[in-house]
Design a protein around this nucleic acid. Structure first.
Lengths: 137, 137
DNA sequence: ATCGAAATGTTACACTATAACAGAACCGTC
DNA sequence: GACGGTTCTGTTATAGTGTAACATTTCGAT
């Protein structure tokens, strides 16, 4: 949270109450949160909000590297190391739904393959589904 | 298509009319097809079908490696090399929406990282978004 | 011929996401 | 401190994606 604040200060980004609250919710959650999970978290506070409020805040957080979207789950997690630009990978446990973030692991071979095809990579999605240590039998 | 037939014959899988038709639609499509694209493709033929028909056929094709789901797009593509078990990666052009499949590129570093954490990988999603050669300016 | 399993039909609904426009808050400048 | 533009938020409505649940049919093997 502190990291997020200083990052926003540095970049002249506005960490508004809604955005801050959404980030807090993501940080507090043990697992990835859907947009509507976040929304109901917001609405546990004060005046009722609508879906766009949640999506806008989440878009902001993702755009600036404070959160990540897990495509496989249609859900979001707080970034584990905000500030550093990275292309993280995620380990998703199918039993407990917890998501672990690992540092940039975009495969060199993928880069090479893309180069060979003349494809210019702008973003990557690397997600693994399986069983985390706690859930492996 | 021939490959799909012999694969199903080998494994005693039933490539029913719906499933076959969905696979044909995916093979014929220049880009990834959403489930509802597939559904309307089905309904261009004969009796009207409902969403579950499309989803069931797609699930079957994906389960047996005849098609892949592109998480980033909520869409599906026919497999480029059915029969071989693989963990493909995809290059998604954000301009023309075409999807290129590349052979297994699951990063070794991801495997090692997962091992180090005791995480057992069962499936991977590796997708890159960017510009394909035709769309790069 | 019958039985069980697999596939499909059907209805209804849940979840995910965005368009479009109106209003409010912020921020710099004069 | 009033303006004017930009950014953010509120609000309504709707589009897009996916599944639960149960009935019916089809298939394949005994």
């Amino acid at each position: 949270m502190d990291a997020a604040e200083s990052l926003c200060a540095d970049r002249r980004l506005r960490l508004t109450p809604v955005r801050r609250r959404v980030l807090e919710l993501l940080l507090a959650a043990p697992k990835a949160q859907g947009a509507y999970d976040v929304l109901s978290g917001l609405n546990r506070d004060a005046p009722p909000r609508q879906p766009p409020a949640a999506y806008r805040a989440l878009d902001f957080l993702v755009a600036h590297g404070l959160a990540h979207r897990i495509e496989r789950l249609n859900a979001y997690v707080a970034c584990a190391s905000p500030g550093s630009t990275h292309r993280p990978a995620f380990l998703i446990c199918r039993a407990c739904d917890r998501v672990a973030e690992t540092p940039d692991l975009t495969p060199d071979r993928l880069k090479r393959e893309a180069d060979a095809q003349g494809f210019r990579i702008e973003a990557t999605v690397v997600e693994a589904v399986g069983l985390c240590p706690a859930c492996a039998p």
